[in-house]
Structures are given as structure tokens and as C-alpha cells.
Design a protein around this nucleic acid. Sequence first.
DNA 1: ACAACTATTAGAATCTGTTCTAGTTTGCGA
DNA 2: TCGCAAACTAGAACAGATTCTAATAGTTGT
Lengths: 198, 198
Amino acid sequence: MDSHATTGGHSVRTRSQHQRRKRIVQAAAALASRGGVEAMQMRTVAERAGVALGTLYRYFPSKMDLVVAVVGEEIDLLENSIERRPPGAATPSSRAVDVLMRATRGLMREPELADALIRSLIMAEVQTPFGDRMTGLLLRVSADGLTLEQASEEQRDLAGSLASVWVQELLEMLRGRRTYDQIQRRIETAASRLLTDI
Amino acid sequence: MDSHATTGGHSVRTRSQHQRRKRIVQAAAALASRGGVEAMQMRTVAERAGVALGTLYRYFPSKMDLVVAVVGEEIDLLENSIERRPPGAATPSSRAVDVLMRATRGLMREPELADALIRSLIMAEVQTPFGDRMTGLLLRVSADGLTLEQASEEQRDLAGSLASVWVQELLEMLRGRRTYDQIQRRIETAASRLLTDI
DNA sequence: ACAACTATTAGAATCTGTTCTAGTTTGCGA
DNA sequence: TCGCAAACTAGAACAGATTCTAATAGTTGT
């Protein structure tokens, strides 16, 4: 309903505010990467970031907003990684698989963090940019640099569906019901159907 | 870690305990079907069920366990209904779409409850038979009565992927980001790709 | 019937997210 | 520089989930 300046990072006034925000997110990520969301308590985050609890709530109106910010950084890392080393495979679908499995490996490196973030995002009442960003990423690598806005509805549907499958597979993995190889096979199967002739 | 007797309903000792459990679940469902999970406060549930808070926690060690129990009853209804009236469309993919959209309409009738249902299933630490049951249902209607065990790995992957897409679309709907028609279009698009020549 | 054990109860206590209050500091335009 | 609005701080207060306690009621085996 309301658009805060907190999650976007725009409309930040001073340098110190920018740094404060950064310290908060870093403190949150550090805590979450060990004990998960439970360890990422608002009081503790504030303390670690050297900030009052009220200030933390000024920057992030709820704990979920903070989680979303942490996830945003993870996606930034993924996007940077893709920019540095774009997937070189021949077909759209195998490029998409490349990206998704690279993201999977990244998340597997910090399972506690991944678990906390994925579950929290799925539980979020409000819209999170997570799905859209992944969908955009998939479109970019599989449909020749297309953006979310330029894509046709069908293209967005197909890329979005693949992102959905990936998220569910991640959840299954976090439940201990999938191995990396199983995820890869399922993603490959789904991608070859969903992204052929896109 | 531990497997309680609470969610299963087995190992209930006396008749009064069985009835107590039933009253608790009914009270919880009544509260959730109006105000959603927030309205379903543990104190209130205990009060409505005429049970002490400690007793409620003896039966359901966490709020999530209670939600899962409420939701379990709803799923039974859903599956029975679908099996009583099998879809009659011509192609495998349209039969699958039929089933999924019928389930969607059923869930839309009580949005607050549906919200709790879907989220709890996704969040459940333990395995819930939900995904597998849904996948089995899709295989049955789209691949000529196939069961989960009889299907090939690829068939299970494809049906499972469609189920994943459906679950994510439901979540988007509950967040207010999808209309019924949008879901239908996306499910149709995904199904036609995933279930052709299955 | 008796003892041991388990279930239930009312209510206090704890924990953590969130809000509120009152006072202090900071940035900035006049 | 002055003054003001916004940002910040410490800490109390509040809310709802979960845990704990001490007492009572119910069940079961002998």
C-alpha cells in the first residue's frame, strides 16, 4: 500500500544513512547465516549494527522487510556473477538451467540462511520482488536480453513457471527430500519443455 | 525431531480426549475461516474449545501443528470431491487444468482458510503428503490412471512441476497479485507445455 | 480401595516482534 | 549563526506465542 524508502535504497539522504542501512543489512545477514531467522532478532540486529531499535524500525518497518533486503543482496550477487560470467550454453533452456543451478549452489553454501530466507519470503504477506527478479533474470539469459517489460505475456508466464518450479525444488531440498542432482534433472526437464521456442 | 501423536489422530487414548481434540480443531477452523491465522490466537482457540492453554499445547505443540490439522480436514474434502467427479476433457493437459482450477475455486471460497492452508503446507518442516497427492492426482487424470509408482521418472517430474506452478500461483493469488483468470491462463500455458506427449 | 501416574486447569512468567515516549543530535535553509 | 524539522537514542510498554508452576481431577493396575 505504502511505498517506503527502506527497501529500494532510493531517496536516501545522507552518506551516513546509506552506511547505516548497509551496516544493518550486514548485521542481519551475519546473524541469519548462522542461526537462521530466529537468531536474527531485531534487538540483536540493532545492537550489532550499533543502532537503536527504533532506528532499525525506521529503516525496516518489519522484520520481513529486513529479510527481503538481505535476499536482495543475495540476488545482487547472483546478477553480478552472471554479468561477470554469462552462461555460454547454446540453447535458451540450457542457459536458464545454468543460471538456476548456479543460484542453487550459491544458496546451498549457506543452508541456514537459504532456509530462513526462502521460507520467510514465501510466508510474506506482502509482495516481494523475489519472483519477479528471478523471472527477469531467466528471460534475460534465455530470450536474448529481453526485459520483463518487453516480454510477451506468454514469455513471462513460461519464465515465471520455471522460477516457480525452481523455488519449490529448493524447498524440497531444504526439507531434505532432494539432492542437488535430482534438482538439476527436474529443472532440466521442466526447462526443456517450458523454454523451447520461447 | 520428534513425532507427536497430535497431528495424526492415532494413539488417542480416551473418548473424551478424542472429543477434546475435535473441539479444538473445530474452534480453530471457525476462527481461521473468518479472520485468518491472526484471528486464530492460541488463547482464543483454547477459550472457545473450553480447554486450558496448557492443554491446547499438549495436543498441538505449536500453532503450526494446529493449522496443519485444520488444513488436513480441508484437503480430504478437496480430494474426495475431485475423485467423485473426475474431469471429462479430451486432452491430458486440459484434464489437468480442469482439476487444478476446480481445486482453485474450492480454495477461493474461503480465502482466509486457504491462505493458512497453503502457507502451512509449504512451511511444514516435516513431509506432508500434499505435493505427492497432488502430483498423483494430476498423473491419474492426465496419463490414463497412472499411479505415482507406475509412472516414469520423467512423468513424475513433469506432473510435479505443474503442481509446483499451481502452488506458486495460489500463493500469488493470496497475496492479491493474481486474478482467477490470470491463474487459469498461466496454468493452461504451463500444462500445455509440460503435459503434451506425456 | 489405594497408590502411582497422567491429564487438566488457572494463571503467572518468558520471549520476541512491534509500538510508543521523551529527550537529544544533526542537517540545512533563512 | 539561528531555528526548525527530521533523524536518532534509550528504554518502557504492549501483544501474542510459548513455557512453567502448583494444584486438582481422572485413570489404571493391584
